[in-house]
Amino acid sequence: MTRFSKADALHLGILAMLVIAFFVLPTYHVGAVSRIMVLAVYAIGLNLLFGYTGLLSLGHAMFFAAGMYGFGLAIKFMAAPVLLAFVLALIAAAALSLVVGLLALRTAGVAFMIVTLMFAQTAYLVVLYFGEFTRGDEGFVLQQAERLLLGFDVTSETGRYFVAFSVFAICFLGFARLVQTPFGKRLIAIRENEERARMLGYDVGRYKLLALIVSGTISGCAGALYALLFGYVGATFASVQYSILPLLWVLLGGAGTTIGPLIGVMFMFYLIDASSAYTNSYMLIAGLVLVLLTMFAPKGIAGILRLRVMPWLP
């Protein structure tokens, strides 16, 4: 039981720190942390599939975009209220994950990477092809008046922060719970040894499909949340770059840990933000840090913590 409560305390502690952060941080950083929490939700989505199930997707941007466009188009063309649009976004992401899962899960390993990559590329081109509705690469804006959540203004610093916080908290805690359930443990078993899991009588295919659907839906949730809080929907978020970024965040933060995604996003954001204050060639610094980090912190930041300080880290 101590193991369990320690982890629980850590998760609640992190959430408490995020609440305190709102009151102590300067305005700019409050905005930055709002964005970090949204992107961390995206990273949590990928972490479930990659970190826990061992399936490396290089196409998660399509799920993020499905949520983003599901939400944005519902508001733009159906004038849907925010909550309904959000539900539609989740349905869109879940449906896409289901279809992609049924096809892509026929493959494994590197073939799975490539299939997801190419499906995502297809999705990106579809967004451009239907430019009449999506405005292609340029994207479109959701007006402030269209972004009222049950009459609550999410475009103020406070509103944005706490909406981001609430969704993050639900995903973060839900995810921490999920990986403790038998379902989560079976996913880890599949990651560790798929053959063995199959021999033990688990329907490996079904678990993988479920993991992909949950993962894709969480990513879509992040996409919808981004559109809601920042008022912009654009094809950039469907591009390959936004499939690679969450992978980088998860690997940096620590794949297969509950706190890794948040740490990874925060680390990468502030690495670029801080180094760009000193030099224009901040990408050079970011590149060097990535190389050094992978050389000296093999399992990501949370992986180091687990190794050195907190062996109980979930």
Partner: peptide, 13 residues
């Protein structure tokens, strides 16, 4: 996994 991060770093550089 580490090669992916490392080569992304090299890419940036």
């Amino acid at each position: 996994d580490r090669t992916i991060v490392g080569t992304i770093g090299i890419l940036f550089i």
